[in-house]
Simulated assay, not measured.
Amino acid sequence: APAPPTAPRATRPLLLGTYTSEAGGGTGIGTAAYDTATGAITPGPVITGVDNPSYLALHPSGSTVYAVAEQEAGAVTAVGLAPDGTYEVLGSRSTGGSGTTHLSVHPSGRWLLSADYGSGSVAVHPIAEDGSLGERTDLVTHSSPPPGPGQGGPHAHQIVTDPDGGHVLAVDLGTDTVYTYALDESAGTLAEVSRAALAPGSGPRHLAFHPGGRFAYLACELDNTLVVCAYDPATGALTPGPGQSTGTGSGTSYPAQPVVTGDGAYVYLANRGPNSLTRYTVEDDGATLRLLDTVPVGGDWPRQLALSPDSSLLFAANQRSSTVTVFGVGPDGSLTAVGDPFPAPVAVCVLPLP
């Protein structure tokens, strides 16, 4: 009898953020496909008409992606994604700030949250049924506390909703503070309910929650630490613990971003200085991180990390080498480089779609 046909490997879309204004940068949002089994990436067309899309976020429906415009006149852009792989730029809205560096979609799917690094502000935009954006409903500037040592002002670097869906957290590198807000889901406005002070000059940049929702891991890019923070979903209070080693030795490692595996068992941290990934195992239901080792990232200046939806693959966007490197994630948390680095101009964000 003839051998049964080999089942085709599943591939899923992969989107790539870049700086269109930089030398050697891309011309828009890059598209590609990744093999869910091997991690191999194949290139696709570029979504043009989107300026400096340095960070990307997907709507819960999967039908719209949002991009920051990281430039003086901060903005956010919506792009519709059709099932056949075609796309349509749905328009942009001003954030009211400058240097938009991060965004996320509220789990309700009705609000887009964005962070402006240059102006140290965060903004909210309503999301229409078709995924397009309405006029901004709020803009909050981190006017206090005063900026940390060497900082000229506030620098909002990330804005996310907690796993419980009850609060929004904004990480500010300039004020060494994480702000917790309550989002009014009818008006699209933010009300501060708590703030967490980090060590002066630590430069908090990005946090990632443990799936249990009681702990978050915060990368501080100026003092080379990862901070385990306790979190109270009822009040939104974040309580930072002492800074933990990144395992990168002396020198400035510029940690960029932590990610947590879907089962909450491992944390990986990108270090831009030494071009490495730090591996931690999670203990005590999220309360403790134990440093395992560091692994070469295989590129230069890993600005952003992303896990595939099933946490079997880890993608690293390497800005200065203009590459995406891919690792297989073992059940024991091991990272094994797979394939050759994928060329992507000034790669600063990689978003694997489910």
Rank of each mutant, 00 (worst) to 15 (best):
A115K: 00
P146R: 00
R110P: 00
H106Y: 12
T101P: 02
Y181T: 06
L190S: 07
F209N: 13
S98N: 10
G120M: 04
S186P: 00
H157W: 01
L103V: 09
L139S: 13
I159D: 14
E192W: 06
R110N: 10
A199W: 12
L207P: 11
L183Y: 00
V160L: 14
T95S: 15
R195S: 14
P200V: 14
P211W: 03
G153Y: 09
A156W: 01
H106S: 12
S202H: 12
P211I: 08
P163V: 00
L183S: 09
A191I: 10
G109Y: 07
T175E: 01
T161H: 05
R136Q: 15
A208L: 11
G96Q: 12
D184V: 06
F209D: 07
H102T: 04
I127D: 07
T180V: 06
G97Y: 05
S104F: 13
E135I: 11
A128I: 02
Y117I: 05
T137A: 03
G212N: 15
G148V: 13
S202N: 01
V160A: 11
V171D: 13
G150R: 03
P146V: 04
G109M: 07
H206P: 09
G96I: 09
L133W: 11
P145Q: 05
G165E: 02
A191Q: 14
P204H: 12
S114W: 00
T100Y: 05
V122H: 08
G203V: 08
A123H: 04
A156K: 01
G96M: 11
P154E: 08
G148F: 07
L133N: 05
S144F: 12
T137R: 05
G174M: 14
P146L: 01
A123K: 08
V171P: 07
G213E: 10
S202E: 04
W111D: 02
G131C: 04
P126D: 01
A170C: 06
D116L: 11
S144V: 14
H157T: 14
D184S: 02
T161P: 00
R93L: 08
P200E: 13
A208P: 03
D130Q: 00
P147K: 03
D162T: 02
A170K: 08
L218E: 12
S143R: 15
P163L: 01
L112C: 12
V178P: 00
V168I: 10
D172T: 09
A128P: 03
G201L: 10
F215Y: 15
P147Q: 03
T95C: 06
S104C: 10
S121K: 05
P147M: 04
P146G: 05
Y217L: 13
Y181Q: 08
L90S: 07
V124K: 13
L169G: 00
L173E: 11
D138H: 04
H167G: 01
H102L: 02
G166E: 14
L198C: 02
F215I: 14
L139F: 10
V140H: 02
S114M: 07
E185H: 09
P154T: 02
L139I: 05
S121F: 03
S104L: 12
Y217R: 11
Y181N: 04
P149G: 00
G166Q: 15
L103P: 05
T189A: 05
A187I: 00
A187R: 13
S104Q: 12
Y217P: 09
G109T: 07
P149N: 02
R214I: 12
V193C: 03
G203Y: 15
R205V: 09
H155S: 03
A191D: 14
S202P: 06
